[in-house]
Simulated scan of single mutants.
Amino acid sequence: MIQVKKEGVVLSKTILPFENEGVLNPAVIKEGNFVHMFYRAVAEGNHSTIGYCKFDGPLTLFEIDRKPLLITEFDYECQGMEDPRIVKIEDLYYLTYTGFDGINALGCLAISKDLIHFEKKGVIVPQISFEEFDRLAEEETAINPKYFRYNEHTNSLEKDNNKYLVWDKNVIFFPRKINENFYFLHRIRPEVQIVVGVKDLKDLTEVFYQDYLRHFNDYVVLSSKFDHEISYVGGGCPPIETAQGWLLIYHGVKDGADGFIYAGCAALLDLENPQKEIARLPYPLFKPELDWELNGEVNNVCFPTGTALFEDTLYIYYGAADERIACASVSFSGLLNELILYKKEDDK
């Protein structure tokens, strides 16, 4: 079993109005010895913006802004910008986040050339009711019955003439194009899906997604498999390219006596065909154990969203109990060697 070191809390909420309720679930990108962090900052009323700070090395806070870097501007994000992730593809940074309008939570994109100025590109996932999603997704083959449990809802919202859409979160780009195309993960509960072979992001149209949903089962990458992820799985950190495959740190959720328990998990996807799972740890990489993971705004949460590699040590940044940001570290080569022991073709 691979050993993970809990490095502790690296960022906590402050008295500043934009982050006085919590800081969590950060996007992370390493450049040189610096780690840039774009984190979800929560104000009173559960209104989220994106704050910014920088670390010198993996753990030493070097610089932090006293106001949010990105704020809500449009209807689709009017209640908050949540849970960002970031990658660099060629000469552009792609920052994805969940836009929340008070009813719907949908994956959005902003791009930047300098990590300072960002251009918002809007919602990039399907905007669809559950009824329409179910009709399209089951047109050819039956889908996991848990989709109904996690995405159907009462009629209370329709009574107020509000439009309720399937929540589609955890949008995470692969950090390079594959065969000159964009690939990205996303999550409609309870599984992780992938969008593949997109030449231009302008091609993510309603027609594109209707065809995509008609073949929905073909694009499911990860499903619940082990006890610690039995309820559902979701995206975590941007995939890391290795000789063995794309290393994916994701989150797995188990419904316990005191509510859901969120753990960090690890898998490998095929380099040229990331729809194919190569290996997966049969146990959580790390889970809530310490007070600041067990107790907070939401108890029992380790929610990984970003990594930084320093020599052979992989630092994994995660939201702890939905209130603070912590870091865990693990041997990079050791984790890959451990994963290879659990190749999918070896499953019994």
Score class of each variant (00 low, 15 high):
Arg40Ile: 01
Pro190Thr: 04
Val123Thr: 05
Asp291Met: 09
Val221Asn: 04
Asp270Val: 14
Pro84Asn: 06
Asp270Pro: 06
Cys78Thr: 14
Thr242Leu: 12
Ile124Gln: 10
Pro288Leu: 11
Lys177Gly: 12
Phe100Met: 01
Ala267Glu: 02
Ala137Tyr: 03
Gly319Arg: 03
Asn299Lys: 08
Tyr212Ile: 08
Leu271Val: 13
Glu323Tyr: 06
Cys108Ile: 04
Glu119Cys: 01
Asp211Phe: 03
Glu277Asp: 02
Val166Arg: 09
Val42Ile: 15
Pro68Val: 10
Gln275Met: 10
Leu281Phe: 06
Asn337Tyr: 11
Ile128Ser: 10
Leu69Tyr: 05
Tyr342Val: 09
Leu309Thr: 14
Phe133Pro: 03
Glu77Phe: 06
Leu222Met: 14
Asp322Tyr: 08
His228Lys: 12
Pro175Thr: 01
Asp258Phe: 08
Val298Ile: 15
Leu294Thr: 02
Thr141Tyr: 12
Gly107Trp: 03
Leu341Val: 14
Ser224Asp: 07
Gly235Asn: 02
Pro126Ile: 03
Ala308Asp: 01
Glu289Ser: 15
Glu63Asp: 12
Asn33Asp: 15
Cys302Met: 11
Thr98Leu: 01
Phe260Tyr: 11
Tyr52Met: 02
Gly102Thr: 02
Glu21Trp: 03
Arg176Trp: 03
Pro239Asp: 08
Lys343Asn: 13
Leu69Gly: 05
Phe74Pro: 04
His215Gln: 14
Cys108Trp: 01
His228Asp: 00
Ser333Trp: 03
Ile103Pro: 10
Met1Leu: 14
Asp270Thr: 11
Phe216Ile: 02
Ser129Cys: 02
Leu92Glu: 03
His251Val: 00
Tyr283Pro: 05
Thr72His: 09
Ala41Asn: 05
Leu341Cys: 10
Asp312Lys: 10
Ala308Met: 08
Gly306Ser: 06
Asn300Gly: 13
Glu277Thr: 15
Glu138Val: 05
His251Asn: 03
Phe216His: 08
Lys13Tyr: 10
Ile71Phe: 11
Ala328Thr: 06
Trp292Pro: 01
Phe62Asn: 09
Asp258Pro: 00
Asn25Ser: 13
His47Cys: 13
Glu44Asn: 15
Ser129Met: 08
Ser12Leu: 12
Gly122Thr: 05
Leu92Tyr: 02
Ile172Gln: 07
Ser129His: 00
Glu191Ile: 02
His228Thr: 13
Phe18Cys: 09
Glu132Arg: 13
Met81Pro: 05
Ser224Gly: 11
Ala243Trp: 06
Glu119Tyr: 09
Glu345Ser: 14
Phe208His: 04
Ile340Glu: 07
Phe55Met: 09
Phe286Leu: 11
Gly334Cys: 00
Gly197Ser: 09
Thr72Ser: 15
Gln79Trp: 00
Ala279His: 09
Thr154Leu: 15
Lys287Met: 07
Arg280Gln: 08
Glu158Gln: 15
Ile325Asn: 10
Ile249Gln: 02
Ile29Asp: 02
Ser129Glu: 05
His47Tyr: 12
Asp270Glu: 14
Pro68Ala: 11
Ala105Leu: 07
Glu73Cys: 09
Ala43Met: 13
Ser156Met: 13
Pro175Glu: 00
Asp291Ala: 14
Gln244Met: 13
Val298Arg: 06
Ile71Asp: 11
Cys302Phe: 06
His117Cys: 12
Cys302Trp: 06
Met37Gly: 00
Pro288Val: 09
